[in-house]
Amino acid sequence: QEELVKAFKALLKEEKFSSQGEIVAALQEQGFDNINQSKVSRMLTKFGAVRTRNAKMEMVYCLPAELGV
C-alpha cells in the first residue's frame, strides 16, 4: 500500500496524466496489478488532487503543492 501511494504521488508530480485511465495504466506498468479506475479515483480524492493546466496547456492531474511530495 505504501509503495502504491509513493508511485501514485510520483506519477502525479510529472503532471502529464489527463485521465484516470492513464494513471491506472501507468501504475499497472509499474507492477501494481490490482489497481483500477475506482481505486485511482479514491486516491485522487484522498490526496486532494486537482486538474490543472501544465506547461503545454494540457489539462492534467496534479497534487496541491502544500502536500510537499
Rank of each mutant, 00 (worst) to 15 (best):
A7R: 06
N54K: 03
R51S: 04
D33M: 14
L27C: 02
K56M: 10
E58F: 05
S41H: 11
Q37V: 14
G68N: 11
E15Y: 06
N36G: 07
G31T: 01
A26M: 06
G48Q: 07
K13E: 08
Q28I: 13
A65S: 14
L44T: 01
R51E: 04
Q1I: 11
V5D: 13
F8K: 00
K6P: 04
L4A: 03
A25Y: 09
V40Q: 00
A55T: 08
V69G: 14
E15W: 06
Q20V: 15
Q20S: 11
F17Y: 15
C62R: 07
A10S: 11
L11D: 00
I35F: 03
G68I: 09
K39P: 01
S38Y: 14
K46L: 14
M59R: 04
L4K: 01
M59Y: 14
R42W: 14
F32Q: 01
C62W: 07
Q28K: 14
L27V: 01
K13P: 01
E66I: 07
F47I: 11
L11W: 03
I23N: 00
L63M: 07
D33W: 13
K56D: 11
L67C: 11
F47W: 06
F47N: 03
K46P: 00
Y61C: 01
E66K: 07
V60T: 04
E66F: 08
S18P: 04
L4E: 04
E29V: 09
E14I: 07
K9R: 11
L4S: 01
K39D: 15
L12R: 00
E3V: 09
A25T: 10
K9Q: 08
S38A: 14
E14P: 02
V5K: 08
V5E: 15
R53N: 07
V5G: 07
L4Y: 04
D33N: 13
T52Y: 09
F32E: 00
K16P: 05
L11K: 01
S19V: 05
V40W: 01
S18N: 06
N34C: 10
E15Q: 10
K6Q: 11
R51A: 05
T45W: 09
S18V: 10
M59T: 06
V40E: 00
N36K: 07
K46M: 14
V60M: 03
R51T: 06
G48D: 04
T45F: 10
I35C: 02
N36C: 04
D33C: 09
T52P: 02
E66R: 06
P64D: 04
R42L: 13
A25R: 13
S41P: 00
G31I: 01
A7F: 06
V50W: 05
T45H: 14
K16F: 05
G31N: 03
E15T: 05
A10Y: 08
F32Y: 08
S19I: 05
Q20A: 14
V24I: 08
S19P: 00
S38H: 13
K39M: 14
E15L: 10
L11C: 04
A7D: 01
F17W: 08
E2M: 13
F8M: 07
M43V: 01
A10W: 08
A55G: 09
A55M: 06
S18Y: 06
S38K: 13
V69L: 09
K9D: 03
C62Q: 08
P64R: 06
V40R: 00
S18E: 06
F17H: 06
A25N: 09
L27F: 01
T45L: 13
F32L: 02
E14T: 13
A26G: 03
V40N: 00
S19Y: 09
S18R: 15
L63H: 02
E15D: 04
F17A: 04
V40A: 02
E15I: 05
A25F: 10
S18D: 03
Q30N: 05
E3A: 14
N54R: 03
A26S: 06
E2A: 12
F32D: 00
Q20R: 14
S19W: 07
M57H: 13
V5A: 10
E15A: 14
I35R: 00
I35A: 06
Y61I: 04
V24R: 05
G21Y: 12
K9A: 07
G21W: 13
L67N: 13
V69M: 09
Q37D: 11
Q30K: 10
G48W: 03
M43Y: 05
R51F: 14
L63R: 02
V60G: 02
G68R: 05
N54S: 04
K39C: 08
T52N: 08
E66S: 09
M57D: 15
V24A: 08
A10E: 10
A49H: 02
S18W: 06
V60R: 03
I23Y: 02
L63N: 02
Q30D: 04
Q28P: 00
K9M: 14
S41A: 14
S38L: 11
L67A: 14
A49C: 04
A65R: 09
E66N: 10
E14F: 06
N34P: 04
N34D: 13
F8N: 00
E14N: 06
N36M: 04
S41F: 08
A7W: 05
N34G: 12
K16L: 07
M59Q: 06
L27I: 02
E3L: 13
K39L: 15
E15R: 07
L44F: 03
L44V: 04
E14K: 08
A55E: 12
M59F: 12
R51W: 10
E58A: 05
N54D: 03
V69N: 15
V69K: 09
Q37L: 13
S41T: 08
V60I: 07
L67H: 12
Q28S: 08
P64I: 05
C62L: 07
V50F: 10
Q37H: 11
L27W: 01
K39R: 11
E2K: 10
L67R: 10
E58Y: 04
Q1S: 12
V24H: 04
Q28G: 05
T52E: 07
C62T: 15
G31Y: 02
R53E: 08
G21R: 14
M43F: 06
N36Q: 05
K56E: 10
F47E: 04
G48F: 04
R42N: 11
F17I: 04
M59D: 06
G21D: 12
F8A: 02
M43K: 00
I35Y: 02
K13R: 15
R42D: 14
F8P: 00
V24L: 11
S18K: 15
M57I: 03
F32V: 01
E22Q: 15
L67E: 14
K6W: 10
E14M: 15
Y61Q: 02
R53P: 09
S38E: 14
V69P: 15
S19N: 09
F47H: 07
P64Q: 05
Q28D: 03
L11I: 08
A10C: 07
A65K: 13
Q30C: 06
T45P: 02
T52L: 11
S19A: 07
A7G: 02
F17N: 02
K39G: 09
L12E: 00
Q20W: 06
K56T: 07
A49W: 03
D33T: 14
E22P: 03
A26N: 05
A65G: 12
M43I: 03
G21N: 13
K9G: 04
K16R: 14
G68W: 04
S38N: 12
R51C: 15
I35P: 01
M59E: 08
V60Y: 04
M59H: 05
E14Y: 06
N54W: 02
E58I: 09
L4F: 06
S18F: 06
A55Q: 09
Y61K: 01
